[in-house]
């Protein structure tokens, strides 16, 4: 089974949306803790972060949403994704502890490369520009799986799957032993299928946020369409 990771921005509606995503077939839910200056994000997630902040979603509120989501979907790994500034302000260890207490399984810090604060346990990211040495380091330090950034660029839906992915997957397979989930730019079932031919799972963010605007039913249906696409691959493989 290929894994399906869905990204949602932490807002009051998020627990219900997360349940819909899980019902649709999501294996893992990433929970965006919004930051005012998200360097790794394209316009969709940036705007979602701006809105969440304008609705008062600060670290404590995000942890509450994490807790509520965990209560609704206790069997699904939940992974906060955020930026260093939030951890710096909250306290690095305290942040990690409180995420765990609230039901988080790990976390992702988008602007924290593997050699900065290696003691902070998290899912590491590698990119097409990463050297073999850095891929190996990230693989050795990552928490459970390795996040392959499929493009040199920011988050956001794209017309086609990145041409940089095959060689990144090939290198990562040679250098690390953990599962490889690919994200950035994946939005359609067709993308999902072609990425899953290579990687062990996919991460869908910007498009999921857009669909989530239409409510839980639309999100469930969208996630189910990705799930079916992935399951075709699993059968073939």
């Amino acid at each position: 089974m290929k894994k399906l990771v869905i990204y949602l921005m932490a807002e009051p509606e998020t627990p219900e949306l997360a349940r819909a995503a899980v019902d649709g077939g999501a294996d893992i839910v990433e929970l965006g803790f919004p930051f005012s200056d998200p360097l790794a994000d394209g316009p969709v997630i940036r705007r979602a972060a701006e809105r969440a902040l304008s609705r008062g979603m600060r670290t404590r509120e995000c942890l509450d949403v994490l807790r509520q989501t965990h209560e609704l979907v206790p069997g699904t790994p939940l992974i906060p994704m955020t930026y260093s500034s939030l951890l710096e302000a909250y306290g690095w260890e305290r942040f990690a502890d409180d995420v765990q207490t609230a039901g988080g399984s790990s976390m992702i810090v988008a602007d924290l490369p593997v050699d900065v604060r290696p003691e902070t346990r998290r899912v590491q990211l590698v990119a097409p520009t990463s050297t073999d040495e850095r891929i190996a380091l990230a693989g050795a330090n990552t928490d459970g799986w390795l996040y392959l950034v499929t493009v040199t660029g920011t988050t956001g839906a794209r017309g086609e799957v990145s041409s940089a992915l095959p060689s990144l997957v090939e290198r990562a397979r040679r250098l690390v032993s953990v599962p490889l989930y690919a994200g950035f730019g994946i939005s359609t079932p067709e993308h999902a299928r072609s990425v899953a031919e290579l990687a062990d799972g996919i991460v869908v963010g910007s498009r999921a946020l857009q669909v989530a605007e239409e409510g839980p039913d639309a999100l469930r249906e969208y996630v189910a369409s990705l799930r079916s696409a992935l399951d075709t691959v699993a059968v073939v493989a």
Partner: peptide
Amino acid sequence: GVLHGARSSVLADEDGQI
């Protein structure tokens, strides 16, 4: 705080929002 790739002194609220 952390802004634009570096840890420095920044204008930010208690949650690290710039």
